[in-house]
Design a protein around this nucleic acid. Structure first.
Lengths: 253, 253
DNA sequence: CGCGATTTGTGCACGCCTTCACAAGCGCCT
DNA sequence: AGGCGCTTGTGAAGGCGTGCACAAATCGCG
């Protein structure tokens, strides 16, 4: 396993110019780091919009809501793009993270399922402003086909293969009912889609090489419910000595 | 708070009763386990609806999309609710998980921000079917106040304290624009809300004792984008030997 | 009644992630 | 030019989570 990617450190190259031709692929970037990069990116855009040219790890970390050591370690995986004693160049770091995430290409995304949630997603401006382009909408309901949503006409699901190929779509968002989700995903995979964001509350099976991320709104609420339940039990039960409870600074009215 | 926590426990009283009367609070339940319990619960409901009375850890794990050892370890944290040689009683396990998550109480949830996403969330049936009740809608736009959404009239945000108290709301969903999110959250916390599900793409600051979970749709897409980018780089770069790439087309079932 | 088949519950080891703490590097001021 | 303060990048330690592998426990059946 000599596939270790050696990174010639730019320690000697004291300029702010790109030390090395940025390797586009980061095969061994920790998954936890990847999940945080978008958050850093959003924070950096905020900083850039408010006129900041450079930012320290402490400053960026607090804006992004993480620990500064964690932030530095995350960024160190991308290479050395900071300057000791000064901080990070905001614009350069934005560029670097966007390159790593592959956001400079305006990726085309397909949205399948134009119900309540699908409508909201199609109209959501956050996708476009963050590097994506909703290229096509699909639905199985013939009554919805042709309906204009946010400037796009809804295609029937049977046109999937044709449109996906024409628009070079590699990412799809599934916002269908549960009963249709697996069928739709099978079609998507057959058309060559290799990344899927699933809003249907079910487990999808896909072949190796296809990535699936799931967003389940009810699950998030249920997790919060547990914490509510736990907090209520703790405050209601004086049986345990309430020592060492240092976080009871809740604002009471 | 009185626990209606009595389990008839149909299995014979041979087991010298329960090791301990199940405590309502699980202070030391691992966070990773908590995050998976809702998934197990959903899978269990599916099994119950299809006529299954018992299920093995292997069977439940495959339906829930996890490893069977992980499932068993997760459930073991709740106590021993399985029968060796047989499996888990579906109905009993549902009851137990719902109790742990605090879902037997029909928790009242407030939804703040009735825009595109807020509308979709208000109409989303998945909340109600999984133990929650959307008790009130709020918006800062006076033009929207009074508008009926899914059978509820939209309140103005100024009525927050009053309605939250009257409906005993402890969980809130924030679906406002970024600019309003922190202000809304401050109000919510002041009203006594202690759990918040945030859809606004920003970091919220809350006092200790308040839980925040964040759902950022664009971040999910960006994570997928990275994997797309990486996959494309790998296939396009013949420089690295393509060994160790086990893309077997094993069709998972 | 005992035995084998089956499944749970869990001790253990391993790997990932987080956090601390500090040396190395950089700019600024004198 | 040289020192000083500030910040990055990183080695090391600890904690958490995962998955294996197996003993314990239960049921069904002859």
């Amino acid at each position: 396993m000599s596939d270790r990617q050696r990174e010639p450190y730019p320690s000697d190259g004291l300029g702010a110019s790109h030390p090395i031709p940025p390797p586009n692929a980061f095969p061994d970037l920790p998954e936890a780091t990847i999940a945080r990069l978008p958050e850093y990116l959003r924070a950096l855009h905020n900083l850039a919009d408010t006129g900041h040219d450079t930012v320290s790890s402490e400053g960026l970390a607090s804006v992004a809501g993480v620990n500064s050591a964690k932030l530095r370690k995350d960024l160190s995986h991308l290479g050395s793009y900071g300057t000791r004693g000064v901080g990070y160049d905001v614009a350069l770091l934005i560029e670097q993270i966007e390159t790593v995430l592959g956001l400079n290409q305006g990726r085309a995304v397909a949205l399948v399922g134009v119900g309540n949630l699908g409508h909201a997603l199609a109209n959501y401006g956050g996708f476009v402003s963050r590097g994506f382009r909703i290229a096509a909408l699909f639905d199985a309901d013939s009554a919805r086909v042709g309906e204009p949503v946010n400037g796009l006409a809804v295609h029937h699901i049977s046109e999937l293969a044709e449109v996906v190929a024409a628009e070079h779509i590699s990412i799809a968002v599934v916002a269908t009912p549960v009963a249709a989700a697996q069928l739709v995903v099978d079609d998507l995979v057959a058309c060559g889609v290799t990344s899927i964001l699933n809003f249907a509350p079910c487990v999808l099976s896909v072949p190796d090489g296809v990535d699936v991320r799931k967003v389940d709104l009810a699950i998030e609420l249920q997790i919060l419910s547990f914490h509510e339940h736990r907090k209520a039990s703790l405050t209601a039960l004086p049986s345990l000595n309430a020592a060492a409870v240092s976080d009871s600074e809740a604002v009471a009215t």
